[in-house]
Amino acid sequence: MDIFRKMTPTLTRLLEAFLLVMAVVILNFLLIQLAPGDPVEVIVGEMGGASEELIAQLRASYGLDRPVLEQLFIYLGKVLTGDLGYSYYFNTPVLDLLLQRMPATILLVLSALVVAVVLGTFAGALSAKKPDGMGSHLVTLFSLVGYSAPVFWIGMMLLIVFASIWPIFPVSGMYSMRRPDGIGYYLDIAHHLVLPSVTLATIYIAYYSRLARTSMIEVLGQDYIRTARAKGLPENKVIWKHGLKNGLIPIVTMIGLQFGQLFAGAVLVETVFNWPGLGRLAYDSILRRDYPTLLGILLFSAVLVMIANALTDIAYRRIDPRMRRAKA
């Protein structure tokens, strides 16, 4: 009985998650139907024209000639058995496409996250040291610009400067077509990764630096900091050890919450830099009305965000004893 009581919140949570995913699938499926034109029109467009017979044949083979609700039920049935369907446009199982593209997106998102957290926190903490100093104002200015500029615009500006005017970085893709071997292969990927990850990181650097600044200013006004200073500890130690450790808490929270947004940002960044990830695939499949692929990506990202939230939840309970007690 005790185990059961312990399991109930987890089960409820799982059921909630499942229902939410189903709701996401249904909503997305219906939303996509609102866009005019269907995948067959795109295929015919790229063929340069086709006869009525061929158009009807294509529609029938993709099941597009059936009523929308019937299509929805067929799709739901497939999803429940783990089959994400077949891409109309790419002629490949959707799952294969997703798996093919996933590593690139994960690499991009994680490296952007690391860059953003490290640089953002550092800049924020530094500016909190002297809230009215020159450095602090620069950080504020940078945050403002970084946060308000559209991410694709930043990407294009970086491309113009660092790939065209001063061509030290590649303009597109994740690796050179003529691939170097061994360690060179990884360096080649790293070289391609710089601009996209910096672009994606920019808004989050802005975000985290603002957050770190506010949090640090608050922390540095606390009694224990005064005590630390009064003890005669060196200022650096006060800031980086006593201050930052406590100032980091809201940032950790943010990382979990923003994972979904980071993923959304990847769609734009991947499109600008031709990064072969899920975001670029999403863009391609929207333009081509490739419903199964798009639905697969949306489903995948919904699940991803849910996992990130669940992890944050778990992390909370670990960090903060009050959370655990409150539930009990």
Binding site: A35, P36, G37, V42, V44, G45, L287, R289
Partner: peptide
């Protein structure tokens, strides 16, 4: 906004 809309 895109080809299928126009084609329709």
């Amino acid at each position: 906004p895109d080809f299928p809309t126009w084609a329709k």
